[in-house]
C-alpha cells in the first residue's frame, strides 16, 4: 500500500468483555502483517442485539457514536462478521449523517476478508498441526459472503480456509453439513432456548464426529454458544478464533 493506511480496530462489546485474548490476537496479527492499527477508546455495543430484536430505531445513539469514533480511519477491521454486517446493513436512518454512514460502511471489513481482499495476504508462513473444524457464522457467510454458501451454485471459496490452509500441519476438516446455523442468533438464544440449544448440540456433534481438535470461526458469538454447550457436556474440543490460530501460528 502506498501511503500507510491507518486501521481502526473495532472490538465488539462482548469480545472486549469476555474474549480480550481474541482482540489482542487480532491487533498483534495485523501489526505482524505491517499494519498501523489503533483502537479508539470508548467503544460500545454497535447496536446489533437491539436491531435484531426489532428496535433498530433505538440504535441511533450507538450508531452516531460509532461513526464519531471511526470516521477518521482508512479502514475499520473487526474480528466479527456479525457486528460488521450490522454496521454495513442495519444502521438506522441518521439524518444529516448519511454520507458518513456510507463512508463507514464502505471501509469496514471483517478480519479474514480484510486479510484476503485488502492486504491480499498470500502465503502465511507458520504451523498449526491440528485438525481444525471451521464454523461459518451465518452473518459472515451469507451476509458478508466470506465463503460460498452451500445453497448457491457458484465456484467454491472460503476466505478463512484460504488463510488457514497455508499453515503447515493444519488439517482442514470437512463437515457433514458444511454451513448450517449453530442456533445462537442473538436474542434467539434466549427467547427460543430449546431450539437454540438443540441446534448448537447438532452443530457441535458434526465437528466431534469428524474428530475436530480445534473448533474455530470468525464470530465469537457462535463460538461462545457452542463452547457453552461443549463445556456443559464436558467435551474436550478446544475453541479458538481464527485470529488466535493465525497469530499463534505465524509467531
Amino acid at each position: 500500500m502506498k501511503k500507510e493506511p491507518h486501521i481502526g480496530l473495532f472490538i465488539p462489546c462482548y469480545v472486549d468483555q469476555f474474549y480480550p485474548q481474541v482482540a489482542i490476537a487480532t491487533l498483534e496479527l495485523l501489526e505482524k502483517l505491517g499494519c498501523k492499527v489503533s483502537y479508539p477508546l470508548g467503544q460500545t455495543c454497535c447496536g446489533q442485539p437491539l436491531a435484531n430484536a426489532g428496535y433498530e430505531r433505538d440504535t441511533e445513539g450507538s450508531s452516531l457514536h460509532f461513526i464519531k469514533l471511526f470516521e477518521e480511519f482508512d479502514y475499520i477491521v473487526a474480528p466479527s462478521g456479525s457486528c460488521v454486517l450490522h454496521v454495513k446493513e442495519h444502521f438506522p436512518n441518521l439524518p444529516g449523517k448519511e454520507m458518513s454512514a456510507i463512508s463507514i460502511q464502505k471501509k469496514i471489513f471483517e478480519l479474514t476478508e480484510f486479510l484476503t481482499d485488502v492486504l491480499k495476504v498470500g502465503n502465511l508462513k507458520g504451523a498449526f498441526p491440528k485438525k481444525v473444524g471451521y464454523h461459518s457464522s451465518c452473518h459472515g457467510l451469507r451476509g458478508l459472503r466470506l465463503a460460498s454458501s452451500s445453497e448457491l451454485n457458484i465456484p467454491h471459496f472460503n476466505k478463512a480456509k484460504q488463510l488457514l490452509t497455508n499453515l503447515d500441519g493444519l488439517e482442514w476438516i470437512e463437515l457433514s453439513r458444511s454451513d448450517e446455523c449453530c442456533g445462537f442468533g442473538g436474542t434467539f438464544a434466549i427467547t427460543e432456548e430449546a431450539l437454540s440449544v438443540q441446534m448448537g448440540k447438532d452443530r457441535l456433534a458434526d465437528h466431534l464426529s469428524h474428530e475436530v481438535e480445534v473448533l474455530t470461526g470468525g464470530d465469537l458469538s457462535c463460538l461462545m454458544h457452542l463452547q457453552g454447550i461443549a463445556s456443559r457436556e464436558g467435551q474436550k474440543v478446544e475453541f479458538m478464533h481464527v485470529a488466535e490460530i493465525l497469530n499463534q501460528a505465524i509467531r
Partner: peptide
Amino acid sequence: PFASTLCGS
C-alpha cells in the same frame, strides 16, 4: 418473525 436466527439460508 422472531422464530429465526436470520441465518439467511
